[in-house]
Computed example of a mutant assay.
Amino acid sequence: MSENISDIDYKQVIEYALEPLIIHSHLKIIYINRAAEKFFRSPKDEIIGASPLDIFKETSKTAINKRIQSAYEQPANVIEETIYRMDGTTVDVELYCHPVTMGNTKAIQTYVRDITERKVTEKKQKEMEKQINELSSTLVPLLDGIAVLPLPSSLDEEKAKQLLDRVPVKVKEQNVKCLIIDFSAIYNLDTMVTEYIFKINCVLSLLGVRSIVTGLRPELALVAIELGTNFNSTPTVSTVKAALHLIGVEYDGDSAIQIENKLR
């Protein structure tokens, strides 16, 4: 037997909804569901009767008030805001509100969605992108056609992948004929990072760019061998200075100091 839609108790639907829900009218909260009570960390009776503007920062209140007034006529667009819980802690949220009618009273129903984790992830991604951009542009020019790529100690799979995408482009832009890949800051290697570095070396070779590996610690060389990475076709020396000697670059003491300063 099918149920009549008119028999649905919508108050129960919103009361037990998983997302926090607030209903307010004329800047006065008249209802919150259980999820909102838990989200705001306060009993219902301490929230009902308060102004919805109280949860916003002072710098946002004017704009939010205008948004509330317009929402009596039509649904408002979803926005992101930082709001206060009742215990004073802040949280990043998405807000969506639309008009509702309670008897003869016009009101606004506002959904609150916690996006803290998403914002943290976005921040980390932006920081990583910034680091990757800085990393991929750090081809330090030493001499005409010769540059060094100092690998950072924080090199992981994602950064190594981005290096594979960007270093060949930078090499062509800077007209590099010989790239010294310096491992001095690297203390640990894993399979994926080693594989990407090997791929960078292969791509550079296809582009006609000579690669030289420097600063690879003996224990890391053993790890690379154990991981099955073959650097036999790539000259490996202890320092950048030794790499320049290998290339056949002649320089005096002053030139050596200038090169060392570039690498700092």
Rank of each mutant, 00 (worst) to 15 (best):
L263T: 03
Q69C: 00
S238K: 14
V78T: 12
S205F: 02
L53P: 06
S205K: 07
R118T: 02
T101L: 10
I79V: 15
N201M: 06
K170S: 15
P150W: 05
I247S: 12
K106F: 02
N188I: 14
I197P: 10
Q258A: 09
M102A: 06
L139F: 08
G88R: 11
K106W: 01
T82N: 09
R113T: 11
V120S: 04
S238E: 11
L149I: 02
C97V: 01
I115W: 03
V209A: 01
V249A: 01
Y187R: 14
I181K: 05
E173L: 08
L263R: 15
S51N: 11
V148T: 15
R210I: 02
S255D: 13
I23V: 15
E117P: 07
I200S: 01
V91E: 09
K124G: 09
E260D: 02
E117L: 14
A242T: 04
T105V: 08
G248K: 03
D54L: 12
N33D: 07
L143H: 03
I259N: 03
E173F: 02
Q174T: 11
A185C: 06
I68W: 01
F40W: 14
V249F: 01
P150K: 13
T138K: 15
R118V: 08
V203E: 05
V140R: 07
T116Y: 04
K161T: 13
N188D: 14
I55N: 12
T101K: 14
T234E: 00
R166Y: 04
I132N: 12
I146W: 07
N188A: 15
L164D: 00
N175H: 12
E37F: 11
Y72T: 05
D252Q: 11
E58M: 10
E226T: 13
L216W: 01
I257A: 11
P43I: 10
T116A: 03
L189G: 13
A185T: 11
E157R: 11
T89H: 12
L206C: 00
T59W: 00
R85A: 06
E73N: 15
T121W: 00
A160K: 11
E94R: 15
I55D: 04
V91D: 03
I83D: 10
L95I: 14
K57P: 07
A63M: 06
K170N: 13
D9N: 15
V148I: 05
D7N: 15
